[in-house]
Every structure is written in structure tokens, then in C-alpha cells.
Computed example of a mutant assay.
Amino acid sequence: MGSETFLEVILAILLPPMRVFLRYGCGFWIDLLLTLLGYIPGIIYAIYSLVG
């Protein structure tokens, strides 16, 4: 795992919507909604978008 991927994982855990916005842009609203409904679903979506 490279240092860039490691930083993306840390950003996905700390600020899930920001990580998705920096990578995709449009998925930001989905992740923001998931984060507002519960922090864990936002993290799961951000990590899933990192892998997928």
C-alpha cells in the first residue's frame, strides 16, 4: 500500500464526504447524507468508493 492510498484511507475515516468529493465530485452528496444519518455509514461508503 503506497503512501497516497494510506492518506486516502485516513481522510476517508476522518472526513468521509471530503474524500469522496476529492476523488469523484458527484458522490459527495450521497456520502454527506450517509454521514449525517450516521457517521459509520459515511465511512463505509468512502472506503467502498476507494476500493471500487
Rank of each mutant, 00 (worst) to 15 (best):
F6W: 15
P17N: 09
P41R: 04
S3M: 12
V9S: 08
I10L: 07
V51Q: 10
A46R: 03
M1A: 09
L11S: 01
P41S: 02
I13W: 06
P17T: 05
G2A: 04
P16L: 02
Y48G: 05
C26L: 13
M18S: 07
P17K: 05
L32A: 12
G42H: 07
L22Q: 06
A12I: 02
D31T: 15
C26G: 05
T5K: 15
L50W: 08
M1T: 10
M18G: 02
L37E: 11
I43Q: 14
F21D: 09
I40S: 00
L33E: 05
I30D: 13
M1L: 11
G2P: 07
V9Q: 11
L32I: 10
G38P: 08
L32G: 14
P16F: 03
P17R: 11
R23M: 11
A12F: 00
I10M: 03
P16A: 03
L7Q: 14
G42S: 10
T35K: 05
E8G: 03
L7F: 06
Y39A: 09
M1S: 11
F28E: 10
I30K: 08
E8K: 15
T5C: 06
I44G: 02
L33N: 05
L15I: 06
L14S: 01
L11C: 00
I40C: 00
Y39K: 09
V51D: 09
E4N: 06
R23S: 08
S49L: 14
I43H: 06
L14G: 00
Y45L: 12
W29R: 10
L22K: 01
G25W: 05
G52H: 13
G27L: 02
A46Q: 04
F21C: 04
R19C: 08
C26N: 13
G42F: 08
G42M: 10
E4M: 02
I30C: 04
M1D: 13
I47P: 02
L14V: 07
P17H: 10
G42N: 07
I47V: 12
L7N: 11
A46E: 08
L37C: 11
S3L: 14
L11P: 00
V20R: 05
Y24D: 13
W29S: 14
I30V: 14
F6N: 15
I44F: 05
T5H: 13
I30F: 06
P17D: 11
W29G: 03
F21T: 05
Y39V: 14
A46P: 01
Y48T: 09
E4G: 00
F28H: 05
G52Q: 12
C26K: 15
L32H: 04
I44P: 02
G2I: 03
Y39S: 09
T35C: 09
L7T: 08
M1V: 08
V51K: 13
M18R: 08
G27K: 03
P41L: 03
Y24S: 03
F6Q: 15
F6E: 15
G27H: 02
G38W: 12
P41E: 09
L15M: 06
L14A: 01
F6H: 15
L15R: 07
I43C: 10
I10T: 03
T35E: 12
G2C: 02
C26V: 12
L15E: 10
L7E: 14
L33T: 10
G38E: 10
